[in-house]
């Protein structure tokens, strides 16, 4: 039951892009086509889940050695290495996707969603279904990371679909590009606010 609550909460209620504001750069940058957006979400999904598991275990070692202050540095290095690995693997198995993602693949390193989820999972205490606030175990952390990245993909793909339609419209000159995209995102965020209160 708790896992289901974590999943629904991470995808809809506390959507990572639209209510936590993490990973906005690629959200605005690669969302002009649905295909690219889906590819990007896939890559991010893989990196977030993997990075969270690795950094979760790494954090245990850091705590054990009493060097928690190295958390930020250690986490970002692990994430950078993982992204490099995903890049190499993707280049081999799907060159077309690799081409399509282009510059944004190495940029996953500086996607704050990845580091944000990794840090959140080891520092924040979550409360579900009236239980005690507690830190996540490995299982919960993995589910949370995966569900969060699904929420990222969902927001990204809906937004890309909206922007595809938007590009056919005649937008006032000053609003062209990012401002109109931000307004659209604002309305989308308002729609996602409808989910709040669904889970306490």
């Amino acid at each position: 039951m708790e896992y289901i609550l974590i999943i629904i909460s991470a995808i809809f209620v506390n959507n990572i892009v639209l209510s936590q504001f993490l990973g906005i750069c690629p959200f605005l940058g690669v969302s002009s086509k649905v295909n690219t957006a889906a590819g990007m979400s896939g890559a991010v999904c893989f990196v977030i889940t993997l990075a969270t598991v690795v950094t979760f275990l790494l954090n245990k070692i850091l705590v054990l050695c009493g060097i928690q202050f190295l958390q930020t540095i250690a986490f970002i290095l692990v994430i950078a290495a993982l992204v490099q690995m995903v890049e190499i693997v993707l280049k081999k198995i799907s060159p077309s996707l690799y081409q399509a993602l282009g510059i944004f693949l190495p940029l996953i390193t500086t996607n704050c969603a990845v580091l944000g989820v990794a840090i959140n999972v080891v520092t924040k205490e979550f409360t579900f279904a009236g239980g005690q606030p507690h830190l996540f175990g490995l299982g919960e952390a993995t589910v949370y990371a995966f569900a969060t990245s699904l929420g990222y993909g969902l927001a990204m793909i809906i937004f890309a679909g909206l922007r595809e339609q938007l590009s056919l419209n005649n937008v006032p000159k000053a609003f062209k590009g990012v401002p109109i995209a931000l307004l659209t995102a604002g309305i989308l965020a308002m729609a996602f606010m409808g989910f709040s209160g669904m889970i306490q």
């Binding site: 639209l18 209510s19 504001f21 609003f175 990012v178 401002p179 109109i180 931000l182 307004l183 995102a185 604002g186 309305i187 965020a189 308002m190 996602f192 606010m193």
Partner: peptide, 9 residues
């Protein structure tokens, strides 16, 4: 959240 996007736009 929505106000952030709209105000920035």
């Amino acid at each position: 959240a929505p106000g952030a996007f709209i105000a920035l736009a």
